[in-house]
């Protein structure tokens, strides 16, 4: 659990860290969408350069990104294998039953590898350089137009930021409860599927009970501090669009335009 780097935030001072979270979120989405238009190596090269440039600007150690990709490597390999064996078209190298290896299949597998890697790199960059609270602020701000459609944007954002705030607390608590039950003789690593599921009950029930208690305490504390819902509240953390965000947006838009031009012209 502790090894997993994906979704963690590393505080630092850098160009990317100081960007507006809204910009980072939107540009990451743009990147992921654009990469699905990529169909030749020039486009991939361009997009890889943009990704590496962004990583460089974040000042986060490249080693961390490699570790970010590693847990997902089997999914990538699995997809590639499927592509290689079931791909059709181009020159045929090998054939047996429904399996065949073709030049186009291999090419597609290579594309998929690059695509996956770049998407993971960019999303890892987003989560490593943006704190969860900034992300939830950004989502709230971006969803704001939906209030016109009576979508409860404020409530969703509040739930999101409370949920994010309590993820580490709940993880700590899970660990403490697990330790307490291990000390009482529960051995989590052994047994068949059924006994293993049974062993989860002594963790799950205390965790739920404490979550209920915590929710009640939190609600009481919020009311006591004058919380009455979303209307008429001011914000402490204001999002500000700066020169960095304009520069980054320009770079990404330029990339998008070039990719689409190569693809469709």
């Amino acid at each position: 659990m502790n090894k997993l780097l994906f979704g963690r935030y590393i505080p630092q001072e850098s160009f990317v860290h100081r960007m507006d979270p809204r910009a980072k979120l939107v540009l990451s989405f743009l990147y992921v969408i654009i990469i699905f238009f990529a169909n030749n190596w020039w486009i991939y090269a361009l997009m890889a350069i943009v990704a590496l440039l962004s990583i460089w600007a974040s000042k986060i150690k490249p080693k961390l990104f490699v570790e970010g990709v590693m847990p997902l490597i089997w999914i990538i390999v699995f997809t590639m294998v499927i592509q290689i064996f079931f791909g059709t078209g181009g020159q045929m190298y090998w054939h047996w039953g429904i399996f065949s290896i073709t030049s186009l299949g291999i090419l597609n597998a290579a594309y998929i590898f690059v695509r996956f890697t770049l998407i993971i790199l960019i999303s890892t960059l987003l989560t490593l350089s943006t704190s969860p609270i900034q992300l939830s602020d950004a989502i709230e701000s971006l969803l704001r137009p939906l209030t016109k459609l009576h979508f409860p944007v404020y409530e969703v954002a509040l739930m999101l930021s409370i949920a994010l705030r309590f993820v580490p607390t709940l993880m700590d608590e899970t660990e403490t409860i697990m330790n307490a039950q291990r000390a009482r003789g529960v051995d989590f690593g052994t047994g068949n599927l059924f006994t293993r599921i049974k062993k989860i009950i002594p963790i799950l029930i205390p965790l739920f009970v404490s979550a209920f208690n915590r929710a009640e305490d939190l609600a009481t504390a919020m009311e006591a501090r004058g919380y009455q819902g979303g209307n008429g509240r001011t914000k402490y953390r204001l999002l500000k669009w700066g020169i960095r965000d304009s520069i980054a947006t320009l770079v990404y838009l330029l990339m998008a335009v070039i990719v689409l031009a190569i693809r469709f012209l």
Binding site: E173, T176, I177, N179, A180, Q181, R182, A183, R184, G185, D187, G189, I201, P202, I203, I205, P206, V209, S210
Partner: peptide, 24 residues
């Protein structure tokens, strides 16, 4: 290895902070 630790744990009892949280 973890295999031999279980019996050891019978000989050492731990009361964690706020142990009421472990009731289930």
């Amino acid at each position: 290895s973890n295999k031999h630790l279980r019996l050891l744990r019978k000989r050492v009892g731990i009361v964690f902070q706020f142990p009421e949280k472990q009731l289930f």
